[in-house]
């Protein structure tokens, strides 16, 4: 597995974990605030494992911290979907679902990988992601079939996020079919439609990001950039 691809997986997990963590203290109810914070911690934990592995391959003094805190946005390889702002609860749920529906078959596949390190990380993470997928699927169905307002907001969320779904799957063609099946099945239960004729936006893997990632990294990296090497 190439270093670029491992960083891609790590960046996906870190950026979405950070985005979800922005909900901490702001969730719609205490229970969901904790649920999303738990998912954040799972994703950031996955990112740490993947960065630690990447750092051993890169060498030259690279560590999980230098990879997370000292790379600019054009060096980040995450898909664009995960860097988008949280929007409302429905947007966050939809983004999590679209991502988990990709990450689940991905980790299933990597659980059989010949790469020992990746194999171990995938096996450990798969249990977490199984829950993320279940949790977000339930919420997509619940909100899609909920009130007229929740339905309208979920429809908006699908329309806002769909242009970024091609980019999500661009470097994992093996997962595409399972992802499509899962999304179609949950959307059917939720009475949501897949938008047609959407202009797709991509480029995350190549470091061509939205300004949202720049803003996010400014905040996330602020402390290490201002006080290099600072510790708790």
């Amino acid at each position: 597995m190439s270093i670029a691809y491992i960083l891609h997986l790590a960046d996906n997990a870190l950026v979405l974990g950070h985005r979800n963590s922005e909900w901490t203290g702001h969730g719609p109810i205490l229970e969901q605030d904790i649920a999303l914070s738990n998912i954040s911690l799972d994703l950031i934990g996955q990112a740490r494992n993947l960065y630690q592995y990447a750092a051993t391959l890169i060498g030259n003094g690279a560590t999980e911290d230098t990879l997370a805190y000292l790379r600019d946005e054009n060096e980040y390889k995450n898909c664009l979907l995960v860097e988008l702002p949280n929007g409302h609860w429905g947007t966050t749920i939809m983004r999590q679902f679209l991502f988990s529906a990709y990450q689940h078959p991905l980790y299933e596949r990597l659980s059989d990988s010949n790469d020992e390190n990746l194999n171990a990380i995938a096996r450990k993470s798969l249990k977490e992601v199984t829950y993320h997928l279940r949790w977000s699927s339930e919420w997509v169905i619940r909100l899609g079939q909920g009130t007229a307002e929740s339905r309208a907001k979920m429809t908006d969320a699908v329309n806002d996020l769909w242009p970024y779904t091609q980019d999500l799957l661009l470097h994992s063609p093996e997962e595409k079919e399972k992802w499509q099946e899962r999304v179609q099945s949950i959307f059917k239960h939720a009475s949501l439609n897949i938008p047609a004729d959407v202009k797709m936006i991509s480029g995350g893997f190549e470091g061509k990001h939205t300004s949202h990632l720049v803003e996010m990294l400014n905040e996330m990296q602020h402390l290490q950039r201002t006080y290099p090497g600072v510790e708790w």
């Binding site: 109810i29 205490l30 229970e31 969901q32 904790i34 649920a35 738990n38 829950y131 279940r134 949790w135 339930e138 619940r142």
Partner: peptide, 16 residues
């Protein structure tokens, strides 16, 4: 805890 239905209650209980 608060939850809309039994499934959500079990998930919330798991998380909380």
């Amino acid at each position: 805890l608060h939850a809309a239905d039994a499934k959500m209650a079990i998930e919330n209980a798991r998380d909380v």
